[in-house]
């Protein structure tokens, strides 16, 4: 388990997010209408320390709407450098929606509207002149279900570098593929069958292939949306080791339903509840001495 000694950033200020809780689904096309009584709820303030010094990404007053539905309400949160932040919370709390904002994956969803500021290295990624294509190369994403392309293992990893022109020749491309697979801890298992279909691998291997594919583009931030929910405990263990390894080089935001996993891999934890960011803090503190009652109820298993 990561401890506070690993923490390189300091929490400097605390801001209270004024939020209106709402029922939201992190999944793609939420249809549910919110209960009328919820819309008028008193705002729930964010407890703890949502900001860090010198953040990689800084989100300020982020709101997400799916049509009329208010899925994320005024969330402000920093993603620190070289650390893992875990997003936890019950289903439909908006944690997946939130990390999908960080590389504008929500753009592909019809009727989705995002307001507020999300800065990547000081640059607002929702500014008009920003193109999503290079942004997504900088902020990579690993999905809940392993989704290798129906191509060979080699081509799966080479795909990103190819479209972004990262390799000048075949040798460089080979190099990138090998390094990425090595970093994803998959090289030894697949080096003899790079031309086999990516879909022929086991679930855990496929997920590591997807991570290798993401790393190959050379991102700064890696977003992981429940990367282990479709995997068995052994594959999960490997992915978790990998996440810990990757932290040295990348900033990572991970959504997880497993509180043990959040405790094992992350340095900071953010607890979402019905579209609100309820509490943020060091992982150790969140799991030992949560300050907010909702957080405490959740991590002690009283609901969710």
């Amino acid at each position: 388990m990561e401890t506070a000694t690993e923490q390189r950033t300091l929490f400097t200020k605390e801001e209270i997010g004024v939020t209106t809780p709402e029922d939201s689904k992190p999944q793609h096309r939420p249809e549910k209408t919110l209960p009328a009584d919820r819309a008028q709820d008193k705002p729930a303030p964010t407890v703890g320390k949502p900001f860090v010094d010198n953040p990689r990404m800084a989100c300020r007053h982020v709101n997400v709407f799916y049509g009329d539905k208010h899925a994320i309400r005024d969330v402000s949160l920093d993603i620190g450098r070289n650390q893992v932040i875990a997003m936890i919370g019950p289903s439909g709390c908006g944690k997946s929606t939130f990390i999908r904002c960080l590389n504008r994956m929500n753009d592909t969803i019809e009727g989705c509207r995002v307001t507020g500021e999300i800065l990547l290295d000081g640059q607002n990624i929702y500014a008009r002149q920003v193109d999503v294509v290079p942004l997504r190369a900088q902020v990579g994403m690993v999905f809940q279900k392993p989704n290798p392309f129906p191509k060979s293992i080699y081509d799966n990893v080479a795909y990103g570098p190819k479209i972004h022109g990262l390799a000048r020749n075949r040798a460089e491309l080979d190099e990138i593929v090998e390094t990425s697979l090595q970093r994803a801890g998959l090289w030894d298992e697949v080096k003899d069958r790079l031309s086999h279909a990516g879909t022929s691998l086991s679930g855990g291997q496929q997920q590591r292939l997807c991570i290798a594919r993401t790393i190959a583009v050379g991102p700064e931030v890696i977003l992981m949306d429940e990367p282990c929910s479709a995997l068995d405990p052994i594959a999960t263990g490997k992915i978790e080791e990998l996440i810990d390894e990757l932290r040295r080089q990348y900033s990572i935001a991970i959504v997880t339903h497993s509180m043990q996993q959040a405790a094992r891999v992350s340095q900071r934890t953010a607890y979402f509840h019905l579209g609100d960011l309820i509490e943020v803090g060091r992982t150790e503190q969140i799991f030992t001495t949560p300050r907010h009652k909702l957080t405490q109820d959740y991590i002690t298993g009283r609901f969710g």
Partner: peptide, 15 residues
Amino acid sequence: VPQSLRDGAYGLGAT
């Protein structure tokens, strides 16, 4: 074709 494949490609910065 599963949406997840499209998401995977978008997530890599494909147009």
